[in-house]
């Protein structure tokens, strides 16, 4: 079973993403920051499962989104990574892309937009 990993320090955003994606049928895993996410992804893969997509915030304590993407890409080149940003973060979008992100979505997002973007990435 492939999981969708939501990485954001804000429970509001995590819940919002989770609600938006509920209908897609993917099990959803949550992490509060990049290093938390790396650990959880390792655990998921350890159980023989995989990750279909990571949705990652940029600004987080402990390990930020950009660093996370870099770390994640070290041993997973192809799994899409979606960056959550606010409009003011164009340079972050660029940084995320350089680190290996596959797309981005701007907060606040509508459920439909989130579903559309995610479906495009995980199909």
């Amino acid at each position: 079973m492939k999981h969708i990993m939501i990485i954001d320090d804000s429970p509001t955003i995590r819940t919002s993403v989770e609600y938006a994606l509920m209908g897609l049928g993917y099990p959803i895993a949550n992490a509060e920051n990049g290093s938390d996410a790396l650990k959880k992804i390792a655990a998921i893969k350890g159980k023989g499962d995989d990750v279909a997509l990571c949705i990652v915030d940029v600004n987080m304590p402990v390990m930020d989104g950009i660093t996370f993407i870099g770390e994640f890409r070290k041993d997973d080149k192809f799994t899409p990574v979606l960056v959550l940003t606010t409009e003011s973060e164009e340079q972050k979008i660029r940084a995320g892309k350089e680190a290996g992100a596959s797309g981005w979505i701007v907060k606040p997002f509508s459920n439909q937009d989130m579903v559309k973007v995610v479906q495009r990435l995980v199909k």
């Binding site: 320090d9 804000s10 509001t12 919002s16 915030d57 600004n59 959550l84 606010t86 907060k107 606040p108």
Partner: peptide
């Protein structure tokens, strides 16, 4: 920053 994102979401 977090508050900005999550408040707009809510």
């Amino acid at each position: 920053h977090t508050l900005k994102g999550s408040s707009s979401m809510a």
